[in-house]
Every structure is written in structure tokens, then in C-alpha cells.
Nucleic acid binder design. Structure first.
Lengths: 225, 225
DNA sequence: CTACCATTCTTACGTCGTAAGGTGACCATA
DNA sequence: TATGGTCACCTTACGACGTAAGAATGGTAG
């Protein structure tokens, strides 16, 4: 009679899925063993039957998301290597947009899930298949940085979607800021002015991502062969 | 008579310096209020007289290190914009090599210290002074990512100097790995083979950093004007 | 019914950040 | 000299965290 509540048995997969859902909803700092357990209608220590410790939980979470990235490589390799990698990286970006906490988590992890190696192996295959030497392919991998995984190092506004800079500018005295940061304020002013949709904020991450990606791809194309 | 011990009075600067020293020596995870206090021969709560909370401590630490980066821009702007930025970013890299925990900390911070804006302002100034439009300068800033601060997103071996990949390869069966990751193993084999100094590990971060940097600089030069 | 085993829970420990308020040294004023 | 105030640091305590140790539950096989 009493509330039976959910009594589907726990499992590693169910725990990992709940962890990802929790991080998506509340942020990575909300992902604690106790909160995760309570989301699963379970006590914290019950999680330890399915996972050795929290490190393993985070490893599993990263691995699960990366697997999602690695799975989206269906089309055959008859196109240009650039369009191929371009599509792949942009698809990866869509995954990261859905899980914005993954880049930070991945960066703080000290061991890299094995599936990442397989994913990068495919990229090297694409490169050498297009005529790259292994040496240049290696350089290319480093140059790409984290773009194959769908994100780039964004110093400004790592979290808030709109970017905090304009908010700060509204709070502080604009004239003072223009004096201290003449070039930055001029740049923002110029960019906001001819922005097609200023409501979206003056930094469109998607466009910046593609710009940097193409800059790298075109530069590498010039070095090929 | 009794051990007087160190009784120099505390100060925000002394606390921040000790925090940086502690993180340098023991890693960022060792930087707790209690450990930091004990390094200063003081109780944990004494730190709260000079700093409101730990967030402020971390902000101050980041700000201090970034200030160190911003201070190394002495030479006038008569050289090519590329060599100027190149020198600047490579000098910043030396700071990050001394404080390898800063990139991760900076990435996890939600507010950016004000000094960073001033630093980036100078970069925009260099770019527009060289004929860049504000629009392209904006793109360039995003393309550089964290390189102005002296680091790049390194997925592989973010922590250990030599890179953990070769260690893993030694542990696992090489033949199995070659089957699962044919392109990567071939690449590593090719790179190790013609490496001038294989003892240093097959990834030379300095060279990778410069390669990526030049790739971006040259690509931007082509787009200028 | 009983013995077993997989799964979940209870209790407790040490560490963390930090709120609340106490203690002593120093110093100006009466 | 006595008084009160402010600065700098300390004591105690609380709740949240990860997790070690072992007890309870409940289903299944003999």
C-alpha cells in the first residue's frame, strides 16, 4: 500500500545515466554520491556495489559521453578529408552543447577513457588516407586540440551562454572601461554594431568554432604533401 | 626562549604567495584552507580575516599568476605582429610551465580576473595596429583560444610530463593494441623512429605548441586586409 | 525450511569549507 | 593610569562530502 516508488534494480548503466542527467540538470558540482543516490531512490552506499568509487563514476560518465561522440561517424570516406573531419567535429560539438560540463570534467581527469583512443585512431586514419605523413598527422592532432571532441578552449564566458562581459559592462562605468580597455571596447562596439542578430550576444560560439576549425583545416591542407 | 617560530604578520599577498607555492609543490588538490594555514603556521580560520572565502583565494591565485603573464610585454611594437604575438605567447607559456595547475584552475573558474581583460586588450591592439579589422581580430582571439595565456588544450597526458600512452602500451599487449588502433600505433612507431631524442618522449609539447601557434598566425596573416 | 548469495542499508570516521563568537595585543583618549 | 576600541588570530562547532565495515533484506535453489 505504501508508496512502492521506483524499484527497478540498479545497474552501472542506470547509475551512469542518472549521473549524466543530474549533471545536465544541475551542473557537475551537484553530482555527489548522496544526491545521485537520492535521485535513484537509494542510499549513497548502494552505489558502491556497482562502482568502486567516485573516480570510477566520473570515468564512466566521461566514457559514456565520449562513446556518444564516437558513435556518430557513419558515412564512408569518399569525400574530401576536410569536409569529412569538419562534419565529424561539428557533430561532436552538438554532443558537447547538450553536455556543457563535459569539457571541464574531461580536462580535470587524469586518465583518458580507452574509447577516446579509438576515436582518434579513426582521425589519424582519415589524415594518412588523405596523404598526410604520420609526422604531420601527429602535429595535426595536437593542433586540433579538443576540437575533435567538439569543444574549444573558451576563455571568455566558459559557462553562461550569453557571456558575462556585456553584463559587466552594463554594471561598470562604460567610459571608465573604454579608457582602461580601449581596443577591447572598440572591438565589442564594432562587432555589436554590424551583428545581424545582436540579441543573441555578440559571440556566436558556433561560428567561432567553425572559423577556428577551418583556419586549421586550410592551414593543414597547405602543408599536406 | 620558546620557539618564536615565524611571526611575520599575515597579509593577502603572503597568503596568495603561499597558496601558489603549495599548489606548485603538491598540486592544486592539496590547496585546502587547513593545509595552507598550516604552511603559514596559523589556524585555518585566520585566513578568513584576509580573504572572504576559498573562491576569493582561488580568484586571487589566478589573478596573481595572470599578472605575472601580463607583466612580460616590455618590447615596443615595431616588429611584425606575428613575431610580436609569438614571443608574447611563448613567454606566457614559460609561466604556465612553472605553474602547470593554472590551466585547469582557470578553466574551472566562472569569473575571469580583470587583469585578463587588460592583457587581451593589448593583443587586440597589436592586431588592429597591424591592419586587422575588429571583426577579424575578434575571430583571431577565439581562434587563439588559451594560447595567449601560454597553454593549449592537450587531451593526451594533461599531467604527467612524458605522457601516459607509452606506459599503457608497455603494459598492454602491443599486438592487441596495434589491431585495435592501427593508425595510432603506426603513427607512434613512425614518430618514435625518426625522433631525434626518443628519451624525451615522442610528444614535445614546446614544438607542438609552436606548430599550432604558427599555423594560426600564418592562417590569420593570409586573411588580413 | 534452510542455506546461500546478490543487493541495499545503517552507522561511523575523517576531511572539507566556514559561521559564530572568543582572546589577547596594541593604542588613543580621559 | 584606567578605559574602551580595533586589529589579528584562535576555538569550537556544523553540515556536506567520500567511503570503510558490516548488518539487513529478499529472492532462489536444494
Amino acid at each position: 500500500m505504501a508508496a512502492k516508488a521506483s524499484r527497478k534494480p540498479l545497474s552501472r548503466e542506470r547509475v551512469l545515466a542518472a549521473a549524466i542527467a543530474l549533471a545536465d540538470a544541475q551542473g557537475i558540482q551537484a553530482l555527489t554520491m548522496r544526491r545521485l543516490a537520492s535521485d535513484l531512490n537509494v542510499e549513497a552506499m548502494s552505489l558502491y556495489y556497482h562502482l568502486p568509487d567516485k573516480e570510477a563514476l566520473l570515468d564512466g560518465v566521461v566514457e559514456t559521453v565520449i562513446a556518444e561522440v564516437g558513435r556518430l561517424d557513419p558515412n564512408g570516406g569518399d569525400e574530401d578529408w576536410r569536409t569529412r573531419l569538419r562534419q565529424q567535429f561539428l557533430a561532436a560539438r552538438q554532443v558537447m552543447v547538450r553536455h556543457p560540463w563535459v569539457p571541464g570534467l574531461l580536462g580535470s581527469r587524469r586518465t583518458i577513457p580507452a574509447s577516446v583512443y579509438g576515436y582518434y585512431d579513426g582521425i589519424v586514419g582519415t589524415l594518412v588516407g588523405a596523404g598526410f605523413s604520420y609526422h604531420l598527422a601527429h602535429r595535426a592532432l595536437h593542433a586540433f586540440g579538443s576540437m575533435p571532441l567538439g569543444f574549444a578552449q573558451e576563455i571568455f564566458s566558459p559557462e553562461s551562454a550569453g557571456g558575462s562581459m556585456e553584463v559587466d559592462a552594463a554594471e561598470a562605468d562604460l567610459a571608465v572601461m573604454a579608457a582602461a580597455l580601449p581596443h577591447l571596447t572598440a572591438m565589442v562596439a564594432a562587432e555589436v554594431h554590424d551583428s545581424t542578430d545582436p540579441a543573441l550576444g555578440w559571440c556566436d560560439s558556433q561560428i567561432e568554432f567553425e572559423f577556428t576549425l577551418d583556419l586549421l583545416l586550410n592551414g593543414l591542407e597547405r602543408l599536406r604533401g
